[in-house]
Amino acid sequence: MNNIRRLVLDVLKPHEPSIIDLAQKLSNLEGIDGVNISIYEIDRKVENAKITVQGKNIMYDEVLKVIQDNGGAVHSIDEAVAGTIILDDVRTLQD
């Protein structure tokens, strides 16, 4: 049973299609309730985006397909949350 609730991805993408377009495309996917895309670095031809998707049943393959179809490349998966609840990162003494 697929129970991924949240994914945070580091993506390198061209300026076009815009993040508005990409956010809409991702939010249209089944199992996704919300999408947040923020740009943290802009280059001449490309930009680095932090993509957060949240839902009840996220299918990573579908998310990846949409990102790739829009010219993006996933550099890393920075956070993955699965289960019946959404558990945030817990601070430890080492932090």
Binding site: L12, P14, V46, Q68, D69, G71, G72
Partner: peptide, 16 residues
């Protein structure tokens, strides 16, 4: 080609 050099991916079959 120039964009592909930046993203290091094959963009021919994407929306772009």
């Amino acid at each position: 080609d120039e964009l592909e050099n930046h993203t290091l991916t094959d963009l021919s079959e994407t929306r772009i």
